[in-house]
Design a protein around this nucleic acid. Structure first.
Lengths: 210, 210
DNA sequence: GTCTATATACGGATAGAC
DNA sequence: GTCTATCCGTATATAGAC
């Protein structure tokens, strides 16, 4: 979880322990299905401390939700913002970063997609203020590519649905896909690594065929 | 909802009213976030009747969950089982049926995928007994196609992830996709209709490019 | 079958000692 | 900062009249 730091994560403060436990449980089960007692147990702390550090269950959840949401959307930030890259290079980079992120946070997309549907209001603001950093530029680049002869018309919605669907969906549907195909967890994650190279190729093929 | 029946759905029995209300709310919000009072209000019946007809909230939920799960998986049944169809024909038919089903039940996939993750045990049985009717045959057909020269190797897991991802994901991510692209609900569902023709073409392109 | 009233349990939150 | 004990609202479920 905290790989970049040199020290291993056993020296968390009480507040951090609560937050990490809350993140784990809320992300897996959602707000209503988690009891504050579960969080306290998971964190190995006393129940009263939860309210001491974070006034209420709701406040704690809001913090986790915002952080999860940012992490999910800000995949496309920093490096991918550089406009020197071609559309194809951006796609390859984006898929690479996103699959790494999803491998480390496999429960994130289901949580976020659920919250967006249940709670469109809280989310809308974040969606516009952050503006999903690189995505608008990516779509602009797609549209200008539409103009040139190389690849014909492709609606931004279809393009995004394809790109995110191919990249994110396997993680959302992992238990189902494993059950149907009989692939174990190790093999599954190895195949997700393969997809880093495959998806950009597939996306290109899709763009060239309408 | 009950389109095949000639009569319109205002003449539901009390039991059916409760079940329909429960289906709607549970599918949207999940078990923990729904109160029995919400279901009673939505159904327009007295709270005590819920326990009279379905012993408990949990029992009622189990019924809904099982039905939702079957509906989601049995997309691939009946017509698609016919083995006279080629792989390409099956894909086109499957995508067509699935998009129609998802258009009428847009909350279904998120509910089912959530439940599978939270509750893998209850689900496993259903997954084997039903064996996701047409899918195993579809995959067998894919593998035999791998053998012939036409299309090279494609792992079943990649194939399924692509097919389901392209078809199902847009519905799971609809609110997000609409927000990012600015497409309204009407236009969104029209584009889903377009995808009935596009996805089979894209899948073919993907199969031909590795 | 349907209602009102109520028992009972559970979960979020706090008071107050240490 | 951390603990124990407890309060209190809320939600499920049932008893019993009609």
């Amino acid at each position: 979880m905290n790989q970049p730091t040199g020290q291993e994560d056993k020296v968390l403060s009480t507040e951090e322990k609560i937050k990490e436990a809350a993140r784990k449980l809320f992300t897996q089960k959602g707000f209503a299905a988690v009891r504050t007692r579960d969080i306290a147990d998971e964190a190995g702390i006393n129940l009263a401390l939860l309210n001491y550090y974070f006034r209420s269950k709701q406040k704690l959840f809001d913090i986790i939700m915002l952080e999860n949401f940012r992490k999910f959307l800000h995949i496309v930030s920093g490096r991918v913002l550089d406009d020197s890259l071609t559309l194809e290079e951006k796609i390859a980079l984006l898929v690479d970063i996103e699959i790494d992120m999803l491998t480390q946070n496999p429960d994130l997309p289901l949580f976020v997609l659920n919250e967006i549907r249940v709670n469109p209001n809280k989310i809308a603001m974040e969606m516009h203020s952050g503006d999903v950093p690189g995505v608008s530029r990516l779509l602009a680049q797609l549209i200008s590519a539409n103009g040139s002869g190389e690849a014909p018309q492709m609606q931004p919605l279809h393009f995004l649905a394809n790109l995110i669907g191919l990249t994110v969906f396997p993680f959302v549907g992992r238990p189902m896909l494993q059950k149907i195909t009989g692939v174990d967890e190790d093999a599954f994650y190895k195949m997700m690594q393969e997809r880093k190279k495959l998806i950009p190729i597939w996306i290109k093929a899709i763009l060239n065929c309408s």
